[in-house]
């Protein structure tokens, strides 16, 4: 892997879930198989020491992509290359093992992701213990790094508040000295003032440890603050990719513009929002052509027939037949 190569390279990643009824029901009721395409032909790179954010509404496939990157799910098509190694094609277990320890994950719910019967010390050192590493003083050191006290290592998760638990999750993710951390909605369960603490902590740790983040969130304001590059997902497709300054001031895809216009703003009291029309369509039976066309103000005939490819646009990439024609309503 040359220094200019990205840490993570995702190519044509696709994941299809079989959501059919059980076999016997299908035979008796003569139902066809039903497939849900959660992620459809997604490609992007994450350069080392940057934060790539995936945003989208529920059902857009953002968590599925995160799970495939950490290896919790296998892709149906396409591949995930980390440090130049294709994780799902590589045969040598020692190579895979080496890369696996470079990847960690932080989950949304700090109440569900910590074992209530384990002491904090055991929780934090588990990723290292699992590989037979040295854990002496490790938990104490990490706890201090994430802003807790070394004595907390002997306590149980229930003795901590939500924000403190998420700090424990961050400490656990750091234990195996990873290069990539996949954060799936890491602050969605936290209060604003605590969210600010955790986001600041994550920024600091990124600089100290040279970390790379894949940051998955539905909250545009959080993403704008954290990301170097933002990828917008709609119904499993990557529709736009750009730097935050560009994306928030001059979005090129109508869906991005709709999201930004719909997001509540602090400085907009009494603003009369014209709410977006319609809802996300059924992913089992998505509309033909561009999946966004039924809700799109710019839709023309070609949008109903052909799915637009993700093509370079300005400094970013956009998948739209009418890229750049949309204007923000609330400028």
């Amino acid at each position: 892997m040359s220094p200019s190569d990205p840490l993570v390279a995702i190519r044509n990643l696709t994941r299809v879930f079989d959501v059919s009824k059980p076999w016997l029901n299908r035979v008796i009721e003569r139902l066809p198989k039903r497939r849900l395409t959660a992620v459809s032909d997604v490609s992007f790179d994450i350069p080392e020491r940057t934060t790539y954010a995936l945003v989208g509404e529920s059902g857009s496939g953002k968590s599925t992509i995160g799970k495939m990157i950490v290896g919790l799910l296998r892709p149906s098509k396409g591949n995930v290359e980390i440090e130049g190694v294709d994780l799902f094609a590589e045969r040598d277990p020692s190579v895979i093992e080496g890369i696996r320890s470079d990847i960690q994950m932080i989950f949304q719910d700090p109440f569900a992701s910590l074992n209530p019967r384990w002491r904090v010390r055991d929780i934090i050192t588990e990723p290292v213990v699992a590989r037979g590493g040295d854990t002496k003083g490790l938990a104490e050191r990490l706890l201090e790094q994430v802003g807790l006290a070394a004595e907390d290592a002997g306590k149980y998760p229930h003795q901590f508040s939500g924000g403190q638990r998420q700090r424990i999750c961050v400490a656990r993710a750091l234990a195996s000295e990873p290069r990539l951390i996949v954060c799936d909605e890491p602050t969605s369960a936290l209060d604003v003032s605590v969210q600010a603490q955790v986001l600041n902590l994550m920024s600091d740790l990124k600089d100290e440890h040279g970390l790379t983040y894949l940051f998955i969130s539905h909250d545009l304001t959080v993403v704008r603050h954290m990301a170097d590059t933002i990828g917008v997902l709609y119904l499993g497709c990557l529709v736009e990719e750009a730097a935050p300054e560009v994306l928030f001031t001059k979005p090129a895809h109508p869906y991005t513009a709709m999201l930004i216009d719909a997001a509540p703003r602090l400085d907009a009291f009494g603003r009369e929002v014209v709410p977006p029309e319609g809802e996300i369509p059924d992913p089992i039976d998505p509309p033909p052509g561009c999946a966004f066309h039924p809700r799109c103000p710019l839709a023309t005939d070609i949008c109903r027939r052909e799915r637009p490819p993700l093509a370079p646009f300005g400094a970013g990439r956009v998948a739209c037949h009418h890229a750049g024609e949309i204007e923000l309503k609330a400028a």
């Binding site: 600010a196 603490q197 603050h225």
Partner: peptide
């Protein structure tokens, strides 16, 4: 401490 209020700043006020 809301991220919207500190757009463009490196750190959020906490």
């Amino acid at each position: 401490s809301t991220p919207a209020a500190s757009a463009g700043q490196a750190r959020l006020r906490q």
